[in-house]
Design a protein around this nucleic acid. Structure first.
Length: 460
DNA sequence: TGAAATGTTGGGGCG
DNA sequence: ACGCCCCAACATTTC
């Protein structure tokens, strides 16, 4: 008898921990531990998605003749206790990259026979390193090395049946309303992957930045909880590159593969440099004199900055638990550069709101935007939210969808409502400064301010 | 995976 | 016909 300890690998296909548990003893117990430390974190929507995913996994396990054991408590106590109940059962789980997970797994490993298998990334953490064994800190060479490794091949198919579950105490999966925009589960992930492969992947290079279109895969929540195997995703990207009918389509699939590799780059960064979770990666980043501006932070969090694309992004997040990647960059840049608020405030806020919130990608993205991270944007790169809107939401459809008070504003002013002549406000049914806020900071002033503060930090 | 400022070029209006 | 100037378009550099 073995234990498959489920954490962020909620799938039956291409799951090395499940497979190892199966091969170890024939019979095995799938268990999920509700960890009060993790559940205490304010991230209700992500937890709701997790719970819905567990219910889906439970149904899949039952359909195959097995089941899911739920335990509540500190895994460092609960997993060795369950192993003991089963007469010293070996435990198999997927390795994770966060400092909390690594310390937890070390402690469990000291009290039970724990084997960790790769799977959060297509390649194991630490597998993509330089010849001298040191980690990469720049994306491009990392991606070259990633692609030079033998391509990770997923296991085909899922088990047709599983060994019956022995009688064991099991708790309930907590009830929370399931996220409406992201139905959880492995089947849903497969369905979404298929529909992305059916067309959008080939237009991905040119469409992925368009916030008004559905040009991205929106698979991040499923990758976050392993409802989709990253090996399968990478394999699918490569197959699409081979199937593409022209260079543009091939480049679309390759661009998507690169996004998957970005995800693994940041997993690798977190694995090798766990301190990024508490401080700037580059030393100069610690010199930035951030503003303490609780009202500005509150306006940003409420989607009331007066810049339409910024507010649209924040409200898409508030409504769905997900945000378009381009909007993430714009919103993050606005908080860090225009408002000069510490990126860690934004990082924390995103982790509370995002269904796909993962410390590695989230931290990597924020430090990239702030110019404090690995392979980060140059510090003097300041997004102009108006130009970003004109470029990536040309008709303003994205803004109108998420900021309904601007729905009647004509195209010409949709990204600059403060410039709308007063006589148009009636027809637009929007009084700027009343129904929708004036910009909380003027772009040119904010730009000059952040350039000066960053210059002090980086050139001293 | 920017944007703004500054520099360069060349067509065309005009004296 | 020629040179001067304006300025859009594009390129480069700077933040």
């Amino acid at each position: 008898m073995a234990i498959w300890w489920i954490r962020r690998d909620l799938r039956l296909t291409d799951n090395l921990a499940l497979q190892a548990a199966f091969e170890a003893g024939g019979a095995f117990v799938p268990v999920f531990v509700l960890d009060p430390t993790l559940l205490a974190r304010p991230a209700e929507r992500r937890q709701a998605f997790l719970f819905a995913g567990l219910r889906s996994l439970q149904a899949d396990l039952r359909a195959l003749g097995s089941g899911l054991v739920i335990r509540r408590g500190d895994p460092v106590q609960e997993i060795p206790r369950l192993a003991e109940e089963l007469g010293g059962a070996p435990v198999f789980a997927e390795e994770d990259a966060s400092p909390y997970a690594r310390e937890r797994d070390r402690a469990v490993g000291a009290r039970a026979t724990l084997s960790l298998l790769p799977g959060v990334g297509a390649h194991a953490f630490g597998a993509v390193v330089k010849n001298d064994g040191n980690p990469y800190t720049v994306f491009t060479p990392f991606s070259r090395a990633w692609k030079a490794l033998p391509f990770p091949s997923p296991q085909a198919g899922k088990p047709l049946s599983l060994p019956a579950l022995p009688a064991l105490a099991s708790g309930e999966i907590p009830a929370l309303p399931a996220p409406a925009h992201f139905p959880a589960g492995e089947q849903e992930a497969q369905r979404r992957l298929e529909s992305f492969l059916d067309g959008p992947i080939y237009a991905y290079r040119s469409q992925r930045d368009r916030m008004d279109l559905e040009g991205t895969s929106a698979l991040s929540p499923y990758l976050r909880f392993g409802m989709l195997s990253p090996r399968q995703a990478a394999q699918a990207a490569r197959a699409a590159m081979a199937d593409a009918r022209d260079e543009d389509s091939r480049a679309g699939a390759e661009t998507w593969l690169n996004e998957l590799i970005w995800r693994e780059f940041y997993l690798s960064i977190l694995w090798h440099f766990p301190q990024v979770l508490s401080e700037s990666f580059v030393p100069a980043g610690k010199n930035i004199r951030w503003r303490a501006a609780p009202q500005d932070l509150a306006d940003w969090q409420a989607g009331r900055t007066g810049y339409p694309v910024v507010d649209a992004g924040i409200r898409q997040l508030a409504t769905t638990g997900w945000m378009h990647n381009r909007a993430r960059m714009i919103c993050a840049s606005f908080l860090v550069k225009h408002l000069l608020i510490n990126w860690q405030e934004g990082e924390r806020w995103f982790m509370q709101q995002l269904i796909d919130g993962d410390p590695a990608s989230n931290n990597g993205g924020w430090q990239w935007t702030a110019g404090t991270g690995t392979d980060a944007a140059p510090y003097f790169r300041v997004f102009n939210p108006v130009l970003q809107g004109l470029k990536f939401d040309p008709q303003g459809d994205y803004v109108r969808r998420w900021v309904p008070e601007l729905a009647g504003v004509p195209d010409r002013y949709i990204h600059t409502p403060w410039e709308m002549p007063a006589e148009l406000e009636g027809a637009a049914r929007c009084r700027v400064g009343v129904d929708y806020p004036l910009p909380i900071v003027e772009h040119n002033l904010a730009r000059a301010r952040v350039l000066s503060v960053y210059q002090q930090a980086f050139q001293r």
